[in-house]
């Protein structure tokens, strides 16, 4: 717990130290880290590899953006709608997809996410398809605070990140989290010990989807843009990449992974348009040399106390 507080303090301190460009970058990093943490809950702790998490991110994002744009919801209820939309989608997807396992689970989640993406395109009249739409500045203030400013945005991202970060850290310490790890390690054995593996996996998927939805809604709220590109396969692969890079099944791994990848792409895109090449090389090198990720490898080699 001390370590988690320390991470948050560092993030708070960074605001005063970093130049403006990097403050903006870190607001984005923290929002994406929420997404990565949601993914990590399912992949890192429960051992289920989904290739379709972008649908939950998009559900949160569109749940927020569409209710604001079409029905004039204020921030709080719209945000809540986003989370509920993501959780509900996770419930449906989980009910169907969790009948399968392994490779079939990956492909089924991929197909569902593709369906969601196409549905967004199909209702282009409301969603504006690939082009997306902008959430107006006037609609992005909460409790009298305008969330479009750089400072407000950073602190809003930090607060939401802190809530998710501490909640996930707590969750995986609880018996519930331990049971998920038991399923990851040996599902058969967990079932033999009397745990309802199917139910636990469904719960894990719903929580994971809801957290991803929070990230999506936060993104829409803080950056004011909602677009179909966030529901493409690429956005399903990114969280996998971040979590693998940082360390699956560690609480701070997702944040580390996002920071690393964000700056890797940020720097390399200054040199070439083919910046996704970096993502590809990173994926291959990771699977070959560091399947545990940065934090995971550190934990194994040097600091077994890392959460």
């Amino acid at each position: 717990m001390t370590l988690h507080i320390a991470v948050l303090v560092v993030l708070l301190g960074l605001f005063f130290v970093l130049p403006a460009y990097h403050v903006g970058a870190f607001s984005r990093i923290m929002v994406l880290a929420i997404y990565a943490m949601g993914y990590n809950l399912l992949f890192g702790y429960t051992g289920l590899l989904s290739l379709g998490h972008a649908m939950f991110f998009a559900a949160g994002m569109y749940g927020f953006g569409l209710t604001v744009n079409l029905f004039g919801f204020s921030v709080a209820p719209a945000f809540l709608t986003g989370i509920i939309a993501a959780a509900a989608l996770a419930l449906i997807v989980g009910y169907l997809a969790l009948r399968t396992a392994g490779v079939a689970f990956m492909i089924v989640t991929l197909m569902f996410a593709q369906t969601v993406y196409l549905v967004i395109l199909y209702f282009g009249e409301y969603t504006r398809g690939d082009e997306g739409f902008v959430v107006q500045q006037a609609q992005r203030s909460f409790a009298g605070i305008d969330l479009t400013g750089e400072t407000e945005r950073y602190f809003a991202a930090l607060i939401l990140f802190a809530i998710c970060f501490l909640a996930v850290a707590k969750l995986v310490q609880m018996p519930f989290g331990k049971r998920l790890v038991a399923i990851r390690e040996n599902e058969e054995r967990a079932r033999m010990l009397g745990y309802d593996a199917a139910k636990l996996k469904l719960h894990a998927l719903i929580i994971s989807g809801a957290v991803s939805g929070i990230a999506g809604a936060t993104y829409g709220l803080l950056f004011g843009y909602v677009g179909a590109s966030f529901s493409t396969v690429q956005y399903s692969i990114f969280p996998l990449l971040w979590v693998l890079l940082g360390g699956a099944g560690t609480t701070i791994g997702p944040l580390i992974g996002v920071i690393f990848m964000f700056y890797l792409i940020d720097i390399s895109s200054g040199y070439t348009d083919a910046y996704l090449l970096i993502a590809g090389v990173a994926l291959v090198l990771l699977t070959l040399f560091a399947p545990l990720g940065l934090v995971g490898t550190l934990r194994k080699r040097a600091f077994p106390w890392l959460p």
Binding site: L49, L51, G102, V103, M106, I237, L240, L244, T272, D273, A274, Y275, L276, L277, A279, G280, V281, A282, L283, V284, L286, T287, L288, P291
Partner: peptide, 21 residues
């Protein structure tokens, strides 16, 4: 199985982007 999927996703990006370059 899990790691080959991740590795082939990586290969996908490498081949595609190398062709782009």
């Amino acid at each position: 199985p899990d790691r080959t999927i991740v590795a082939t996703i990586g290969m996908l990006y490498i081949i595609q982007q190398a062709t782009l370059m």
